[in-house]
Write a protein that binds this DNA or RNA. Sequence first.
DNA 1: ACAATTGTACTAGGATATTAGGACAATGCG
DNA 2: CGCATTGTCCTAATATCCTAGTACAATTGT
Lengths: 131, 131
Amino acid sequence: MFQLDPRSGVPIYLQLKERIRHQVTSGRLAPGTRLPTVRELAVDLRINANTVSRVYSELQREGYLETRQGSGTYVREVGRDLREARRDRVRELLREIVAEGLNLGYTQEELIAALKAEIDRIHDKDRRDSP
Amino acid sequence: MFQLDPRSGVPIYLQLKERIRHQVTSGRLAPGTRLPTVRELAVDLRINANTVSRVYSELQREGYLETRQGSGTYVREVGRDLREARRDRVRELLREIVAEGLNLGYTQEELIAALKAEIDRIHDKDRRDSP
DNA sequence: ACAATTGTACTAGGATATTAGGACAATGCG
DNA sequence: CGCATTGTCCTAATATCCTAGTACAATTGT
């Protein structure tokens, strides 16, 4: 279900966390969807159940999942305040990339142009997918 | 010469590395400029010479510096392919942010505005640090 | 050639991060 | 209620990271 690479240097729990987060934010895991149990996923990935639990817990704290003991872990519905929280994350990511971009010699204009270019890319892609 | 913050949580060597990288890419350290010796900088920053050496070595591997044993460490001309590689990386990160932002309901204009806001933030900060 | 100066290799201590094992707690369902 | 299933707490072993100390190697310049 989630493919990981133990030799990538990136900790397993981080890989898993980002995979799940991505599937949630991209909508490939719809709100309400029940995720595998920590033990199922642990066996599947050949890791410890606690490692999976850590991922679920952190994603819950960050507002992406909702875990109910005895029942399971579910993708959370996106409410208004939650949307705000995730927007904060986008801002955070933007801040990081601006810092890095400027550090690497990008000018402000180049950064903005690059952003616009990526926006156009995705727009074009959307248009092709659903004309 | 390089101001660091031991309590920032960011490892010393990383802080130093990014400072130097920034000064190189921004042109404040011109190609050919000789950097302080590892011992000079170590004394100045009250850290170990090996820590400085690590920074110099990594920046050399990444193409920003050129170190010659017995002589010193010099700023290198940042080549086109290096710049292109960095650029690809930033583009890739931007693509992910755009995807996530649009999924959260950002409009194109909001994304661009948010990026500009972050640019201004950092720009102001830079101005305070080195007017 | 020699001595001073440069960066580097090797090592290790200490801190932090990552993963795992086993017992526990909350929930659902017969 | 009783049992199975769920996530979680506590603990500990292990790995990794960061920094420093010391000795070494390459270069420079006299």
